[in-house]
Design a protein around this nucleic acid. Structure first.
Lengths: 203, 203
DNA sequence: TGTACATCAGTGAACGCGCGTTCACTGATGTAC
DNA sequence: TGTACATCAGTGAACGCGCGTTCACTGATGTAC
């Protein structure tokens, strides 16, 4: 119950929530420290400046997202040995995960940063770029394994299909937020699953 | 050559460029008026406050986007009478349009607003919500026409498929920006076209 | 076991800058009679 | 055709607040000898 979190972690938790709902620029250090119950100087003990907060925030976020993806697709692989079917199961699990979030997915930090480029230093933008590439390669590996067994029914570039997974998630989050319907994200992932099935299944 | 634009329109042009690249909060009125070559008071002659700028910006943006979509799908319909084929042509035209933008699509204002909700008043957020609904209904109408002729090969909700078009565009923009590869957006639209074709074509 | 020093996790007060907003005023153009 | 007034499209100076950042200092805990 009374799990002791370090103030540093508290700062990151509070900052993440605020940044995802308002953007990075609109999240002031004053607000963060008020919620974390420390003084502003306490903040600067943990982070040299606001950009360092951004870097730490993004790094932590990417690690947890990666862990979630690892978990989902590993579980899917245990449920079915076939690469196509386990991938389809993985997408279903991912959709369920997104559906179960009480107030919808809070939003993606990668998109937040992409949409306010000029606010961040080169370092942060480069980490963000790498994150997309890592996802691209993760899914590309899985798709190549599938395509080796099930020749695609349309002439598509597998790298582009790999990007589609990130793209669908990012797009689904934007729509969910804009329209105020959390379920939209899960629906879009299910639809992506429909495409993968049509693309690789025998007619 | 020397087309006279009103200062008001200049303000909107400059603001749009800046907001799309840096976000709304990070775009100061000082920067805008410096570029527009007026004083700050001149800005407040045209807009009561910054929120009114946001509303005007969004309304103008949505009108031009709507006009583009009208144009693309009307042209497509002239090229082919069949609803499925003209829709596929429309998506191709859309992809080409996105590809031809010199530095990639500048980013979608709807997403910018979705990602910094708390900065805008209820009015602006509601206009944003309506924009997504309008797109949803536009595409749903086209898809129903298609489905009446070509029964879908997978059990999908057409409203969700309609959302997928917006979602793919929003997601493609996020990816393009994050990874710094403008072509990604066009690729994603082409992939969406692949899905539509597989979904409605006879096996 | 006691003392000296180092590190950790902050505090408190102050800084200067940039921001959105206000307000009284102004020169140029348009309209009524 | 001339005068009076109204509207348009701004100007210039000032405002106060909130922001990120700095800096000297501090009490509690850890470590060496």
């Amino acid at each position: 119950m009374t799990k002791v979190k370090s103030k540093r972690e508290m700062i990151l938790d509070i900052a993440e929530t605020n940044v995802l709902s308002k953007g990075f620029g609109a999240t002031s250090i004053d607000e963060i420290v008020a919620e974390a119950d420390i003084t502003k100087s306490g903040f600067f003990y943990h982070f040299r400046d606001k950009n360092e907060l951004a870097r730490a925030l993004l790094q932590r976020y990417l690690e947890t997202e990666d862990a979630i993806l690892d978990d989902v697709f590993n579980r899917a692989r245990e449920l079915h040995g076939d690469p196509l079917h386990s991938f389809l199961i993985g997408l279903k699990l991912l959709a369920e995960l997104m559906e179960d979030l009480p107030n919808g997915h809070p939003g993606c930090l990668v998109a937040t940063i992409a949409y306010s480029e000029r606010m961040f230093d080169r370092d942060v933008r480069e980490i963000n770029r790498r994150a997309i590439i890592v996802w691209r390669e993760r899914f590309l590996g899985m798709l190549e394994e599938i395509a080796a067994l099930y020749p695609p029914r349309d002439d598509v570039d597998l790298r582009t299909v790999a990007d589609m997974i990130s793209s669908m998630v990012e797009g689904g989050i934007v729509l969910s937020r804009a329209v105020g319907e959390p379920k939209v994200l899960a629906e879009q992932i299910v639809l992506l699953r429909s495409y993968i099935r049509l693309l690789f299944s025998a007619p």
